[in-house]
Design a protein around this nucleic acid. Structure first.
Lengths: 213, 213
DNA sequence: CACTTAAACGGAGGCGCCTCCGTTTATTAG
DNA sequence: CTAATAAACGGAGGCGCCTCCGTTTAAGTG
């Protein structure tokens, strides 16, 4: 029990996987992600298989244990969040990209709140998973912060680590009903502070920061 | 999931429990202790009920969750170990009592080795349980050490904390096949060291310490 | 195409979990 | 001793877990 889950095979290695297998696997992960988010990490696997329209045997062939499935879903979500950093950076001004990404980060954590206990167990039983995802998130944030500093849209006397520390309060905050709103407000405050000492350029949107909600 | 298990109701409080109920409960704990030791913490609860000659419903009435049952068994065993300290102290010379108790401690840990992972989860999910048992064990050890120091059967420049530290290496040692023997040998070495600087009296058994197996 | 076969599928079945509730029994009052 | 009753019993039943294996199918081969 609680043995470390093997890291997901990074594409193209070992076996290409048959077309139907790939399809079923992807569908399972998708349905599972929705199910976990909606009904918690203890959702019936049989139910997930049913919803995905495959037999329970198929689910177990792809994911030998519940933990395997949870890990894959978790990694996929973290990956999605981090990939959004690149897309945002490419489509909106750097400070807006940073702000929007932090909001999504809050939303992401919000969906994980209910799973806290179970996730903690998973993460402590699988330290690779923990460090992998933490590293990935840091990297995404660094990309955004450095771009914004380079553009002069936020002050230059901060770095990604500072922002990460500022954000980390979000983790430790108690799980109250107003948690999400409070956290989003904190992001706004943080961004105002970051923009405050920014270089001369990029201040065209003088009304964005004070926006509430 | 993983909610803290309520501390066992200390005798005589709340409800005296009907005779048959008390009997069944005791029997369940006893059988469960054997089953956990023998087949691991994941043993089927149905099987435990079966062996105890009661219905599964009875088991669940007494122990609403698997964790409740495990906790009670665990506390009972720690209690037994610690109670042995008093008995030993009353029946054999103080240094022998200390030595024998440490051997039992090693044996006790040995039976818990296989359960390490599950126990860690239980202990981290229930900090009261952890501190309670740790405190209880320390107290038993202190009783023995102080008696032996007072008798002059072991050196007087050590205290229970020192011995506890010396013993704690046992916890961290890797779980190899020869673990038990090595640990027992360490206890012997430790005792020799403790006796070495002892007061004049109690050296009648000059051949006990060097004994190997 | 037809054929082959390794790969993938899926569900029946066995087992354990846990709840619910009709039945039995220890205990107390008379 | 008998009756009353609260407490305890215990197992059937519903559900989920997971394995095993007979059936189906995608993807090469001639």
């Amino acid at each position: 029990m609680a043995e470390t889950v093997i890291a997901e095979q990074n594409a193209a290695k070992a076996k290409p996987l048959r077309a139907d297998a790939r399809r079923n696997r992807d569908r399972l992960v998708e349905i599972a992600a929705a199910a976990f988010a909606e009904r918690g990490i203890d959702t019936s696997l049989e139910d997930i298989a049913r919803r995905a329209g495959v037999g329970i045997g198929t689910l177990y062939r792809h994911f030998p244990t519940r933990e395997h499935l949870v890990e894959v879903v978790y990694r996929r979500e973290v990956e999605g969040l981090c990939a959004a950093a690149g897309e945002l950076a490419a489509s909106v001004p750097s400070d807006v990209a940073l702000e929007e990404w932090m909001r999504r980060f809050v939303d992401y954590i919000a969906t994980k709140r209910g799973l806290a206990a179970s996730l903690r167990i998973l993460l402590s039983a699988n330290s690779t998973l923990f460090s992998d995802t933490w590293q990935r998130v840091s990297q995404a944030l660094r990309q955004l912060v450095e771009a914004a500093v380079a553009d002069g849209t936020i002050r230059s006397d901060v770095d990604a680590t500072d922002v990460l520390h500022a954000l980390s309060g979000i983790y430790s905050a108690p799980d109250t009903p107003e948690w999400r709103d409070r956290s989003r407000r904190l992001v706004t405050v943080l961004m105002d502070g970051l923009r405050f000492g920014a270089g001369s350029s990029a201040r065209s949107d003088g009304d964005r920061s004070p926006t509430r909600r």
